[in-house]
Design a protein around this nucleic acid. Sequence first.
DNA 1: TCTTTATTTAGTCAAATGACGAATTGAATT
DNA 2: AATTCAATTCGTCATTTGACTAAATAAAGA
Lengths: 117, 117
Amino acid sequence: MTVPTDKTKIFKALSDPNRLRILKMLQTKELCVCEITEVLQLATSTVSKHLSILRSAGFIAVEKDGKWVNYSINQNPGDQRILKLLASLDFWIADDNLIIEDKKRIQKADRYKLCSK
Amino acid sequence: MTVPTDKTKIFKALSDPNRLRILKMLQTKELCVCEITEVLQLATSTVSKHLSILRSAGFIAVEKDGKWVNYSINQNPGDQRILKLLASLDFWIADDNLIIEDKKRIQKADRYKLCSK
DNA sequence: TCTTTATTTAGTCAAATGACGAATTGAATT
DNA sequence: AATTCAATTCGTCATTTGACTAAATAAAGA
């Protein structure tokens, strides 16, 4: 039995610029919360909330790795619309300057330097 | 020169259930504000606002016809994403019971009976 | 021209959203 | 067992959103 999900849930998930930045960053590689926090320059709790919204909409997957929680693009979304969106994410969400910068920064990021201080 | 539009604008436009109902109704036929108002059972001003959001995002077109203002699915959206969404609207927005009912009601609707009382 | 009718705009209000810091949880590490 | 550190949850606050009513526009019709 499926949970009665809100019709607007997937659109709502894409309705925040910071969540779009997160999705696009995850295109590059799997990331933990503190890496994303570093790039977005938001409070950890805020990023965590954004991630839970993206996850509950079906866009991303979570996996625990000891102390860290890794988030990644969901490779097996149940919803075909999400599959389509993710398959051509660059069509749906343009790579503007900010996002290009995010991706550069995230490529250089070293979790061990960033997160443990 | 293009107006600097918000990255989330098209997703925001789709983030409200009543706006989804409107889009789907317009699939059936061109409609004036009062016809939509009748089906959604909202204040006229509320419907007018929803229509302006859908229009400004690029989903629908407006045409004045005397006293009436007719809204219709935008046949020539500049944005390719909107073209894609509109081309397979049933994929992106499922026909649930409510929407099926809306469409039935709108097919039977006679503007002259509904709007002028 | 005065009135009626369809729509939009302005103003108000409650609920939802996105931000934060503080407190809590969970998994290493000492 | 106590501590450390990543992440989540909780409580608060400012802003946005979606609803309404009332007032303003615009186009017919009397």
